Simulated scan of single mutants.
Amino acid sequence: MQAHIRLATPEDAESISNVVISALRQSNANDYPPEVIAQVERSFSVQAVQLLMEQRRVYVASVDQCVVATASLDGGVVRSVFVEPRCQGEGIGKQLMSVICSAALNRDLDVLLVPSSITAEGFYAALGFQKVRDELHGAERTIIMRKLLLK
Score class of each variant (00 low, 15 high):
Met1Pro: 02
Met1Arg: 05
His4Ile: 11
Ile5Cys: 03
Leu7Asp: 06
Pro10His: 04
Pro10Thr: 00
Glu14Met: 03
Glu14Pro: 00
Ser15Ala: 14
Ser15Met: 05
Ser17Asp: 01
Ser22Cys: 12
Ser22Ile: 02
Ala23Asn: 08
Arg25Leu: 13
Gln26Pro: 05
Gln26Tyr: 09
Ser27Cys: 11
Ser27Leu: 12
Asn28Gln: 06
Asn30Ala: 15
Pro34Arg: 13
Ala38Thr: 07
Ala38Lys: 11
Gln39His: 14
Val40Met: 15
Val40Gln: 14
Arg42Asn: 12
Ser43Gly: 14
Phe44Trp: 07
Phe44His: 10
Val49Asn: 06
Val49Trp: 05
Val58Asn: 01
Ala61His: 05
Asp64Ala: 13
Gln65Trp: 01
Gln65Gly: 00
Cys66Ala: 12
Ala71Asn: 08
Ala71Ser: 13
Ala71Cys: 11
Gly75Ser: 10
Gly76Arg: 13
Val77His: 10
Arg79Ala: 10
Phe82Trp: 02
Phe82Gln: 01
Val83Ala: 10
Glu84His: 14
Pro85Asp: 06
Cys87Met: 15
Gln88Phe: 12
Glu90Phe: 09
Gly93Glu: 01
Gly93Gln: 01
Leu96Val: 15
Met97Phe: 07
Cys101Gly: 10
Cys101Ile: 10
Ser102Arg: 11
Ala103Ser: 10
Ala104Pro: 08
Leu105Trp: 13
Asn106His: 12
Arg107Ser: 13
Arg107Pro: 06
Asp108Trp: 05
Asp110Val: 05
Leu113Glu: 11
Val114Thr: 11
Ser116Trp: 01
Ser116Lys: 01
Ser117Met: 04
Ile118Asn: 14
Ile118Gly: 07
Ala120Pro: 04
Glu121Ala: 14
Gly122Asp: 00
Ala125Glu: 11
Ala125Pro: 02
Leu127Val: 14
Val132Phe: 08
Arg133Trp: 01
Asp134Thr: 04
His137Arg: 07
Gly138Glu: 07
Ala139Asn: 08
Thr142Asp: 01
Lys147Gln: 11
Lys147Ala: 07
Leu149Trp: 07
Leu150Val: 11
